[in-house]
Design a protein around this nucleic acid. Structure first.
Lengths: 244, 244
DNA sequence: GGGACGTATGGCACTCAGTGCAGTCCGAGT
DNA sequence: ACTCGGACTGCACTGAGTGCCATACGTCCC
């Protein structure tokens, strides 16, 4: 009972051997030109063992996403409600980028593979989708009381993921040389500026507020939008004045 | 030369027959429990013909997405630069919903399938991804001069897709009974309010005088007096809003 | 009418991913 | 030494997807 149940400290070397053999072959002759038999032959293990460590051939390309997804779920679960929600999901996205930044060369190699193999691109999309649903689930929970809570949660989660991917891909295209963290901070900064803090940025300008009382000759300033009912009323008033 | 080159008017019935046979079997015994041999046996055609019409078993579930994607690409390509970009991609999203709304029952059946078959979900993600890239490509072009153009384009495209999916899924969950268009307009309205015309320089407050034209989402400032007709209209609007 | 031709279809054999099952090997506990 | 459990291997099987060739049908041309 020493190290098997508590922590996965004793990692089987076979898993790493399979990943290494797979990437060697993928890089030298391409993903689709490499069969699972080739991989297990190079790694010197039985074919059946491959599928015990990786449910599919595609999984060997993303060996650590499952762990990262679990980390993110745990990160969002341990929330003391003290954090601003948008800020919180941005931090969760930083967690993912951290995983990529752990092995820059590996991430760059994988990026080149996924860029040109449709099957791998589809697989990556389903992984990203699970990240996005985790973020959206957290936000739906935090926005439960707001009017369009689930809609807003979905949109914010999608925006965070898009910003993350934008920064990540530009870093990967630079062969992992640039500052990934800075690029991500910049991208997420935009998202936080648009969504962070307060309810809808749209409701603020249209809101007129509690009607104050005062002298009839007081001058009042109204803020409206051209698509708000108030503006249409103004147009009618103006049209009526033009006719007289 | 009559109808083969101009328009795809003479659609082969085999394609429809395969789709019908496939869905019949998918619904009565499940997607993974149905083999391609089962489908072609029911349709009474050869196995090889199936793969001539559908590159993979998954494609038979989404028979019209390829056409819809082409429509969207064409819609975005024929842009006279007169439209507001965010508004334009929202309209493109409405195009996609239109395809779903053409066959409500078919869309609902497909939704139930994709919801519970991981392989189909992954396929759908890759389709949605292509829509999103089409939108983002258009926006990247329109935002080319802005400072963070590509980032903004990616985020807006993701937000539009998320809003579209939110509305679409809630409509599908209602078994296609609700008003899909209204739900989508509501969702996209949020996105347009957050992103539409936000980066432009704040315009100076407009005096009422001669009514200026402008974009619907512009913020306008009105100056009035408490004894003027405008203020009384505002009071009525507020009272009406308080009642609802 | 008959032959040449392009196209749509069917049949067959093949590769390869993925699974189920049975057997083997090895280390730990008693 | 015996056993028990887990890791590993081999083998046979299903099913998706592909390449190749044969066949049928309509068309055009002579």
């Amino acid at each position: 009972m020493s190290s098997t149940s508590a922590a996965p400290a004793a990692k089987p070397p076979m898993r790493e051997a399979l990943v290494a053999a797979a990437f060697q072959l993928f890089l030298e002759r391409g993903y689709e030109q490499t069969t699972v038999d080739d991989i297990v032959a190079l790694a010197g293990v039985g074919r059946r063992s491959f599928f015990r460590y990786f449910p599919s051939k595609e999984d060997v390309v993303f060996p650590d996403h499952e762990r990262c997804l679990a980390d993110m779920t745990a990160f969002l679960a341990t929330d003391d409600e003290e954090h601003e929600p948008v800020r919180r999901v941005c931090d969760a996205a930083r967690l993912v980028l951290g995983m990529y930044a752990e092995n820059p060369s590996f991430s760059v190699q994988r990026y080149r593979l996924t860029k040109q193999v449709p099957g791998l691109r589809a697989y990556e999309l389903s992984v990203v989708w699970r990240y996005e649903r985790a973020l959206a689930g957290y936000l739906r929970d935090r926005f439960a009381d707001r009017p369009d809570g689930t809609l807003r949660a979905d949109v914010v989660a999608a925006a965070v993921v898009a910003a993350h991917n934008n920064a990540l891909r530009s870093w990967l295209r630079s062969d992992g040389l640039g500052d990934a963290g800075a690029a991500l901070d910049h991208a997420l900064g935009h998202v936080q500026k648009t969504f962070g803090r307060a309810a809808g940025p749209a409701s603020a300008p249209t809101r007129i507020g509690p009607l104050p009382t005062g002298r009839p000759e007081d001058v009042v300033v109204l803020v409206s939008r051209r698509d708000a009912p108030l503006w249409r009323v103004v147009q009618e008033l103006e049209a009526a004045r033009g006719r007289t």
